[in-house]
């Protein structure tokens, strides 16, 4: 599991690459939180290159989004492929973390 991050204007942009399974979350969770939470910026998370998502990955997304929201920031996911999108929708994760189709939509949602 890999992660890259940069900024698009005032918005934090995270790119996740690989599998958000038990092993992948173990590898990336600390870096994911550290790249997002401390500065409290609105954040977009690119899931285009995430090839697998299960409950451990959902847990990571929720806990990081919650910590960010306590600092006043928003998090929006985007670019999920069919399998990852299926799990996000089945778990109704979009009730609490928006999922956009692409980056420009995601940027629009974080304002």
């Amino acid at each position: 599991m890999e992660m890259r991050h940069d900024n698009v204007g005032e918005v934090r942009r995270i790119v996740l690459v690989g599998r958000l399974d038990t092993a992948g979350v173990d590898v990336v969770e600390t870096r994911f939180g550290a790249a997002i939470v401390p500065n409290g910026k609105n954040t977009i998370v690119n899931l285009t290159e995430v090839t697998f998502l299960a409950s451990m990955g959902i847990r990571m997304l929720i806990s990081t989004t919650r910590a960010l929201s306590r600092k006043g920031g928003k998090l929006v996911m985007y670019g999920a492929g069919p399998g990852v999108r299926d799990v996000i929708e089945t778990a109704a994760l979009t009730e609490i973390i928006p999922l956009a189709g692409n980056e420009s939509e995601a940027l629009g949602l974080v304002g």
Partner: peptide
Amino acid sequence: PFKSIETAKI
């Protein structure tokens, strides 16, 4: 069901 990010159980 998830209702808010603050109360969501993981």
